[in-house]
């Protein structure tokens, strides 16, 4: 009992000095939290400048963000995105041209600028970007093939393709190695 009384007295003495509460409790917890925030997410981060922010550009960004293993972060300008890529705050950066929606709706080609740092995950992220881009460009590619086969204007080919209702013949399912469901996200600390 004496031991407990001494322990109690010492603890009261230690924690009466408020700074000790910080160093014994708050600081370690804060460091753990910070470590978790900084290193706990193994996903690749992609910075995005949406440009005109039309529905197609939004759709593309959402398609990227919904992928397991990838997080998107919006940036206001190309220069701020470039800075973030250079500093390694994001693995890669995507600048969607401001007339992206208009070009695609008109059946024209649109371009996306991809900021990549050679020593980052950018080449891997690019594969995911290309997958999202090819999904979005699927109908337009089909329309171009229709026009080359049948002739006529691209607008009429787009109209023809848009009228087609077809479910994707090939689906993709991500599974865990155990054969079970793949968790949506899992940090390195889990």
């Amino acid at each position: 009992m004496r031991v407990l009384a001494i322990v109690r007295t010492e603890l009261i003495r230690i924690f009466r000095w408020r700074a000790n509460v910080f160093f014994f409790l708050i600081m370690p917890m804060g460091l753990i939290l910070l470590l978790g925030v900084v290193f706990g997410n193994s996903n690749a981060r992609v910075g995005v400048v949406k440009g005109e922010n039309g529905p197609l550009a939004r759709q593309l960004v959402e398609a990227l963000g919904s992928q397991s293993g990838l997080d998107t972060k919006s940036y206001g300008s190309k220069s701020s995105l470039e800075k973030a890529v250079e500093r390694g705050n994001v693995s890669a950066g995507l600048v969607i041209v401001s007339n992206y929606d208009r070009l695609l709706r008109a059946g024209e080609s649109a371009s996306i600028r991809y900021f990549a740092r050679p020593d980052s995950l950018a080449p891997q992220v690019r594969i995911a970007v290309e997958a999202a881009v090819s999904a979005q460009g699927s109908n337009l590619t089909a329309a171009r093939v229709v026009r080359s086969e049948r002739g006529g204007t691209l607008a009429s080919a787009i109209e023809r393709v848009s009228a087609v209702k077809v479910s994707s013949p090939v689906g993709v399912q991500l599974l865990a190695a155990s054969g079970g469901k793949y968790p949506r996200s899992r940090g390195q600390f889990q």
Binding site: S68, V172, A176
Partner: peptide, 17 residues
């Protein structure tokens, strides 16, 4: 219609991606 299965390890999110 068919389905491609991708087997991934949650600890290697980029590989699965």
């Amino acid at each position: 219609s068919v389905r491609i299965e991708v087997i991934g390890d949650p600890k290697n999110a980029i590989g699965a991606l």
